[in-house]
Nucleic acid binder design. Structure first.
Lengths: 142, 142
DNA sequence: AACTATTTGCCATAAATTTTCACCTACTAA
DNA sequence: TTAGTAGGTGAAAATTTATGGCAAATAGTT
């Protein structure tokens, strides 16, 4: 979706939102941490290094906005906090969670896309997205 | 798993836990609301009608215990609270979430079980459980 | 019926997120 | 370029969700 600041600017403009320095910095942090699944607090602490004046509430507000605009996506693992990652059409992936070391890995798949189509017909449910988590033991923890 | 109070009694006894009136009431509420996905607060408010003296902390502690014993299972939709449902070997299902009316439906499947096996080989990840959510539009909201 | 380890209720606390509000700033139109 | 304005921000308070401590109560045993 938003792979650069230029993208961010146009996405915001299209939706009548302003391009602020805080939003730029937060997108920057997300871009620099692709593949990570950061919480708002974690993003906040990284962002603060670049812009010490930024407030935690702004991070929350920005992430909410980014999700609304399809720039980011919320992840809910089984924790008390929510995590975020950049959303991407090209790289649709899911997560493997190790129940022992808590490592989170990603995987892509095509089979599920096909499965999704069948599901729509079978249950008369028009699927727009799916979130799939597999729990188990990673290579090292088996 | 626990389909009756008798089951509960033996599960608790096997694990050296006591059968208290609070635990009975909470299981009762879960049994009467199969198919629902209640939060701790919601369970608390229903339970209170039957036993006004019960404390919220007890509900949380009981649900934690029930999950530990495999009686219930935690669900994390994209909310701030966790939800619970009875766990059942026979009825392994997943969820369809309508993005418009927020209704949550359930579905069973076999294809995913097979898919899971392949995944284990492909990524050297020993899958023990999966949680799958499909988002989209339900029959009425299409 | 008495014993004892669990369990509970109440209250305080923690942690995550949201709201409030006064001030600030990015875009727009003149 | 320069206001004007709608939208955005920071700080702190408020909410929401969940957990921890402790004295009193209780289930299961002796």
């Amino acid at each position: 979706m938003a792979n650069s600041l230029k993208d961010l600017k146009s996405i915001l403009a299209e939706n009548n939102y302003k391009l602020t320095s805080q939003r730029k910095v937060i997108l920057g942090v997300l871009l620099e941490n692709k593949g990570e699944h950061l919480s708002a607090e974690e993003i906040y602490s990284i962002v603060k290094q670049e812009d010490p004046g930024i407030g935690l509430a702004t991070v929350y507000r920005t992430l909410e906005l980014f999700c609304e605009l399809g720039i980011t996506q919320q992840l809910t693992f089984d924790e008390t906090c929510r995590r975020y990652e950049l959303e991407s059409e090209e790289d649709h992936h899911h997560h493997l969670l190790c129940v022992k070391c808590s490592k989170v890995m990603e995987f892509n798949d095509q089979i599920l896309e096909d499965f999704e189509k069948d599901l729509g017909k079978k249950y008369n449910f028009k699927v727009t997205e799916h979130k799939i988590k597999f729990y188990g033991y990673c290579e090292e923890c088996q």
